[in-house]
């Protein structure tokens, strides 16, 4: 009897806690509106962005695999007679991209505490730094092409432009997404309770930045 009453008390306590955490729909006894249904531990938004990033990772894995075939399979890499890659300028460019990641995280934190102005400013800063990154890369490429490294310069040139160019295309796409989110933020779409769009955009931008770190280490060194 005492054991049963103890179990009943535990079950009752758990039921109270589940109700408090909105983990099950409860019809209130006073006839008021029902509590909202439970939120899953991982939101659909986060699952969606995770699946998207997995697909992107496999896409880049294929490109990196092709690069590895030629790089590991060559006795001399880079091949003789081709211009050296501009390491110093690319390091500085990498710092710009890193700070763009810091800016987008700062914007996400801003909307989490309800600061709309911080969100808009940080998103614009993110897009601006991304534009600087892509512009500097374009300038680098112009120099490399002028010195003889083109798409048809054998596997070295082909894999370089393919890998780095694909990443640059993803940066441009991410910039478009950031600008779209910025426009939505200007219209007051996001709030403390509803900013999943900002979170998805920030996660993708950070992914693009982290991917650059890997590609920079692989291709430029």
């Amino acid at each position: 009897m005492m054991a049963r009453s103890a179990n009943t008390a535990v079950a009752h306590d758990l039921a109270i806690e589940e109700e408090r955490l909105h983990l099950r729909v409860v019809e209130p006894q006073d006839g008021g509106p029902p509590h909202p249904p439970a939120a899953p531990p991982v939101s659909n938004t986060r699952v969606a962005i995770a699946m998207f990033l997995v697909a992107e990772s496999m896409f880049f894995a294929g490109l990196v695999g092709a690069y590895l075939v030629f790089r590991v399979g060559s006795v001399v890499w880079p091949p003789a007679g081709l211009p050296a890659l501009p390491l110093t300028v690319t390091w500085i460019n990498t710092v710009f991209l890193f700070f763009s990641g810091v800016a987008v995280v700062s914007g996400l934190r801003g909307i989490r505490r309800g600061d709309q102005r911080a969100l808009r400013r940080r998103l614009l800063l993110t897009a601006a730094l991304g534009a600087v990154f892509v512009s500097v890369q374009g300038w680098e490429w112009a120099g490399l092409v002028h010195h003889g490294l083109t798409l048809s310069s054998g596997p070295y040139g082909g894999t370089f432009y393919l890998l780095i160019g694909t990443h640059a295309a993803h940066v441009l796409g991410a910039m478009g997404w950031v600008l779209w989110v910025t426009a939505a933020a200007q219209r007051g779409r996001y709030s403390v309770e509803n900013h999943d769009g900002v979170e998805m955009c920030a996660v993708y931008w950070i992914y693009v930045c982290a991917l650059w770190g890997l590609l920079f280490g692989l291709v430029y060194h």
């Binding site: 894995a61 695999g65 590895l68 075939v69 590991v72 399979g73 060559s74």
Partner: peptide, 21 residues
């Protein structure tokens, strides 16, 4: 043959990626 080594490295990398993800 270095090309064999290159293909080997590429295959191992691409086979490992799904498990890592």
């Amino acid at each position: 043959d270095p090309l064999s080594a290159g293909i080997n490295a590429s295959i191992f990398f691409m086979m490992a990626m799904p498990f890592v993800l």
